[in-house]
């Protein structure tokens, strides 16, 4: 499973309340996505397009269980690569088919606007502008299967648990 896309860069400790503030909780999905990163990066939502990739620092996604990963995926982000990812956010990424990769050294290897290529099986992240290739954590097959199914909900539907 490979992803190639334009890179947006973020720093350390980017939290779920920035991705999905509580004012978005009670809104429909199409409205919720308008609030993503509104406090720390106003206007970003209008610039994102399908296939883009986030490259972030340490502890990305710290905070709440809210489905923030679902909003990022809905905006078109396919892959989140970070120095480290909060464990709960990592789970939500897998659940909503947003590919998560932990890759030490990745933050300084990318400048915003670069093109990244990510290989989930090998766990490699390549900067196609500079040629730098970093070794991150491969994603286990069990988790790749959830992403390949389009996320946890389609998988549970396939398995007959949900109508």
């Amino acid at each position: 499973m490979r992803y190639r896309g334009r890179v947006w860069t973020f720093g350390d400790n980017i939290n779920t309340d920035l991705m999905m503030p509580q004012v978005a909780f009670r809104l429909p999905l199409e409205e919720q996505v308008k609030y993503v990163f509104r406090a720390n990066r106003p206007g970003w939502v209008e610039q994102v397009r399908e296939g883009d990739i986030l490259v972030a620092g340490r502890n990305f996604g710290t905070g709440s269980s809210r489905p923030a990963a679902r909003l990022l995926r809905h905006l078109g982000i396919t892959c989140v690569v970070a120095e480290s990812l909060n464990g709960l956010f990592f789970r939500n990424c897998v659940n909503f088919a947003l590919a998560p990769v932990q890759c030490p050294g990745v933050r300084s290897a990318f400048t915003e606007g670069d093109t990244a290529e990510v290989d989930l099986v090998a766990g490699t992240v390549t900067n196609l502008r500079t040629g730098a290739c970093l070794q991150g954590e491969p994603l286990p097959e069990l988790l790749r299967q959830i992403i390949a199914a389009g996320g946890l909900i389609p998988l549970l539907q396939q398995q007959g648990y949900l109508e």
Binding site: R66, P67, A69, R70, L88, G151, I153, L156, L162
Partner: peptide, 12 residues
């Protein structure tokens, strides 16, 4: 530990 969408999977 806290979970997100997999609460669905866990109850199922």
């Amino acid at each position: 530990r806290g979970m997100g969408a997999e609460m669905l999977a866990i109850v199922c």
